[in-house]
Amino acid sequence: MSPSRAPRLIFLLSGAERAVRRWIDARGNAYGMTAAKGGVLMYLRQNPAATMSELSSALRASLAGSSGLLARMESGGLVSRAPDVADQRITRVTLTERGARVAKETKAAINDLNAQLTDGFDEQELATVARWLDHASSVLNTEDSTEG
């Protein structure tokens, strides 16, 4: 790469994102898993009985989009939804036994993927990559919230 030409970050990021999704989709095919479903499982592993609002926010998705995804996951036996005991207006989402098993297997697959993706990079390089990805997400999410 010449000093005057910056890397084609958007092209590289888009290609990497597609490759990661294909990897996740292929690896999770036996369970009907997708990257989006994996995100829900990982969040619920760390945040049992999360509210719909918390889950949507963590996934950076709309409530409507999250609701559709959760309906598919519920019909697949991965999650259950129930009204909050203290406030019936709030819906809580929890992993089922099957969902917990699939979440554990998904976590193992993600650990494998992370090991492959980080192989050959030192901590400082990975910290820079993580900082850049976080920055890109932050900048673009801020722009999304100010439009309209």
Results as ranks from 00 to 15, higher is better:
residue 4 S to P: 00
residue 4 S to W: 00
residue 8 R to G: 03
residue 10 I to C: 05
residue 11 F to N: 08
residue 11 F to I: 03
residue 13 L to W: 09
residue 14 S to F: 10
residue 15 G to F: 00
residue 15 G to M: 13
residue 16 A to Y: 09
residue 16 A to S: 13
residue 17 E to T: 11
residue 23 W to D: 12
residue 24 I to H: 08
residue 25 D to E: 15
residue 26 A to Q: 15
residue 26 A to N: 11
residue 27 R to T: 14
residue 28 G to E: 08
residue 28 G to P: 00
residue 31 Y to M: 07
residue 34 T to G: 12
residue 35 A to H: 12
residue 35 A to D: 05
residue 35 A to K: 07
residue 36 A to N: 10
residue 37 K to I: 01
residue 42 M to Y: 07
residue 43 Y to M: 01
residue 45 R to C: 08
residue 48 P to W: 08
residue 49 A to W: 07
residue 49 A to E: 11
residue 49 A to C: 05
residue 50 A to I: 09
residue 50 A to F: 02
residue 50 A to L: 02
residue 51 T to M: 12
residue 51 T to C: 02
residue 53 S to F: 05
residue 53 S to M: 04
residue 53 S to D: 11
residue 54 E to N: 06
residue 54 E to I: 07
residue 55 L to C: 14
residue 56 S to E: 01
residue 56 S to M: 02
residue 57 S to T: 07
residue 58 A to E: 10
residue 59 L to R: 06
residue 59 L to Q: 02
residue 62 S to N: 08
residue 64 A to F: 12
residue 64 A to P: 04
residue 69 L to N: 00
residue 73 M to P: 00
residue 74 E to M: 04
residue 74 E to Q: 12
residue 75 S to T: 13
residue 76 G to M: 12
residue 77 G to A: 09
residue 77 G to E: 13
residue 78 L to F: 15
residue 80 S to D: 13
residue 80 S to G: 11
residue 88 Q to N: 03
residue 90 I to V: 08
residue 92 R to Y: 11
residue 94 T to Q: 01
residue 95 L to Y: 05
residue 96 T to S: 14
residue 97 E to H: 06
residue 98 R to N: 09
residue 99 G to L: 04
residue 100 A to M: 08
residue 100 A to H: 06
residue 100 A to N: 13
residue 105 E to N: 13
residue 106 T to K: 00
residue 107 K to T: 15
residue 108 A to G: 10
residue 109 A to H: 03
residue 111 N to R: 13
residue 113 L to T: 08
residue 114 N to C: 06
residue 116 Q to S: 15
residue 117 L to I: 14
residue 117 L to E: 02
residue 117 L to P: 00
residue 119 D to A: 13
residue 119 D to M: 05
residue 120 G to Q: 07
residue 122 D to T: 01
residue 125 E to V: 05
residue 125 E to S: 11
residue 128 T to F: 02
residue 132 W to H: 12
residue 133 L to W: 03
residue 134 D to R: 09
residue 134 D to T: 10
residue 136 A to E: 12
residue 136 A to G: 05
residue 138 S to H: 13
residue 140 L to I: 11
residue 140 L to Y: 09
residue 140 L to E: 10
residue 142 T to V: 01
residue 143 E to H: 07
residue 143 E to A: 13
residue 145 S to V: 08
residue 146 T to I: 07
residue 146 T to D: 00
residue 147 E to G: 06
residue 148 G to F: 05
residue 148 G to K: 05
